[in-house]
Design a protein around this nucleic acid. Structure first.
Length: 248
DNA sequence: AACGACGACAACCGCTTCAGT
DNA sequence: TACTGAAGCGGTTGTCGTCGT
């Protein structure tokens, strides 16, 4: 793996390079990775420096075997998130995305290749929920939409969502899931999110439950505007046949 | 002792996303 | 709005150590 490309060193890092990189980060802080090789006096590319720091030199990195509870959490998170290693690692203190990925590829993937485990996993999948990988994406709306521009309109829109008894749950509700699936989703959102009151909210969600009825209502522009402030998932249709799923 | 298979993990590469202009 | 460079992410590869034959 040793070698150079355009004069940039590749391959395993030496102890000397580690020291230079660590000193540089301690002095200037993380970030501005394109400046790090110059500042540290390293003949490495920015990517290499960043990776070395994040995966090896950064303080508080936990090394050694994964504990049973870490593996358990990893499996659950992987079921929910798929191969989103940085998110999974974010919930495993001291573990890096590379660590998690390597562990998964060497231990867990091996297990999933096993036909017996395959069958068990499939059964478990059927018992719980179909995996739905949630990838947050920014949504952009056409500015021609009158209700976004604030102009009055007579356009009919439908709002379809499962009504929660507790409005605090509204934000993460999905009309495409059953109430129990929504409960599960809610718990995970609370677990994965940065919500400070996550535990309390999760408990309340479990104790509260959700109504099973879907409601379809014609909303005025004002109602939609207020709903957007509260938040939630909306299946919106207008009279031009334009429809989309919106999360506020 | 020699050698091949395999596992673990560090590092690279290419692509996507984000932010600034 | 389009463009560009930086940062971040996940897939893949290379290397090294260990174990079994």
């Amino acid at each position: 793996m040793e070698g150079t490309s355009l004069g940039v060193r590749k391959g395993a890092w030496t102890g000397e390079e580690d020291i230079l990189l660590r000193q540089c980060i301690e002095k200037h802080g993380e970030g501005k990775w394109h400046q790090v090789p110059l500042r540290a006096g390293l003949n490495r590319c920015r990517k290499s420096c960043r990776l070395r720091w994040l995966n090896y030199l950064k303080p508080n990195i936990k090394r050694g075997d994964f504990a049973v509870d870490e593996v358990d959490l990893m499996i659950r998170l992987h079921k929910l998130l798929g191969n989103r290693w940085s998110l999974i690692a974010g919930r495993l203190p001291g573990r890096t995305p590379n660590d998690v990925k390597n562990y998964w590829n060497t231990h867990q993937r091996k297990k999933s290749i096993s036909p017996i485990v395959d069958v068990l996993e499939e059964k478990e999948q059927n018992m719980i929920v179909k995996t739905k990988v949630i990838k947050p994406r920014p949504r952009t709306f056409c500015k021609k939409l009158t209700w976004l521009s604030g102009k009055p309109s007579t356009i009919i829109r439908e709002r379809t969502l499962i009504q929660p008894k507790d409005d605090i749950a509204t934000n993460i509700m999905s009309p495409t899931l059953t109430p129990s699936e929504n409960r599960m989703k809610y718990r995970w959102e609370c677990l994965l999110g940065d919500n400070e009151a996550g535990d309390e909210i999760a408990t309340r969600a479990l104790n509260t439950g959700f109504d099973e009825e879907l409601s379809t209502t014609i909303w005025s522009d004002d109602e939609i505007a207020s709903a957007a402030k509260v938040g939630g998932t909306f299946d919106i249709h207008d009279q031009d046949g334009f429809s989309f799923l919106a999360n506020f």
